[in-house]
Design a protein around this nucleic acid. Structure first.
Lengths: 157, 157
DNA sequence: GCTTGCTTTCAAGCGCGCTCGAACCTTTAG
DNA sequence: CTAAAGGTTCGAGCGCGCTTGAAAGCAAGC
């Protein structure tokens, strides 16, 4: 099976400067660097940073996924912690976790440490889903590269 | 960045007997083995083989993605070639290609070799999308495994 | 010939995750 | 004072990819 080699090549290619907004965000806000800036962000700034729309951020709040503070005039203020959670949320969403499951998970988080066992269980399931998806993407990648080789005149096979 | 190592472990784990219906299908119908059985399949059999519902198969036909022959009484008969195409379609769908793009691509395929340049272009785009997705899944996997480690009492960190 | 289980077509419905628009408020610049 | 650019809430709308249901035809066993 050639999947491993393909994936390795892709990941190697990913080491350079990142191309997508999501990548940039993930570098910017990765666990190690996030505490640096202390001033809270407006909804528009937060949206830009995490690569979502302001509408979506408000929607997430409505669904209970994040609870930014408000200033004197009712404007949302996203702290570094809020942004971290948003990054986590986008990663989970991008990896196919449903809103329903995510809401359940966040609910457990806000209930405190007594829910850790269930949270762990959810993350284990999530890990399985992600690994399965990666395998499926590997197959899709093979199919795609096969087509490309054929269209290129299959010079080596 | 630990992504590479994670992915390698996952892919290594994928070498054993496959677990999902999709995996089984992909082994069963991979480019090398498909020509063996000659008798066409009913819509229900085809659906079972490719892991879709009969409704979805009819929907795909309606959308022009596949054109199984019909027998004397109007029943669909899926040949090995039809099944191959369905496998390709499911791989593209699972990797996030939209129905619209897939319809466009199949349209080009049915127009013959003059459209190869555009088909190649579409596959190149698709490859880019898949590699980006794999990178995103790597990040999601890291986040997920991090949580699991924390819930396990972060014994090594 | 009847029943059971498949098949057909067609149109309507649906669940998810946003996305948009309206009506109104706050802040900043000129 | 005014205009422009941001913010607020609320409820309705939407696009995608199926999914379902109705009404009817065909195949095989008893």
């Amino acid at each position: 099976m050639a999947t491993e080699a393909l994936i390795e090549r892709i990941l190697a290619a990913g080491d350079g400067p990142s191309e997508s907004a999501i990548d940039a965000l993930h570098e910017l806000l990765d666990d190690s660097t996030i505490e640096a800036s202390e001033t809270p962000k407006s909804v528009a700034e937060a949206a830009r940073l995490v690569g979502l729309s302001t509408h979506t951020l408000r929607y997430y709040e409505q669904e209970g996924l994040v609870r930014p503070a408000r200033n004197a005039s009712g404007y949302r203020e996203y702290t570094a912690l809020d942004l971290r959670r948003l990054v986590f949320l986008t990663r989970m969403r991008l990896s196919g976790m449903t809103m329903t499951d995510l809401k359940r998970y966040i609910q457990l988080v806000e209930q405190g440490p007594s829910t850790i066992a269930e949270r762990r269980r959810i993350m284990l399931d999530q890990r399985d889903r992600i690994t399965r998806q990666i395998r499926e993407l590997g197959l899709a990648l093979e199919a795609t590269e096969y087509k490309i080789r054929v269209y290129d005149g299959h010079p080596e096979g």
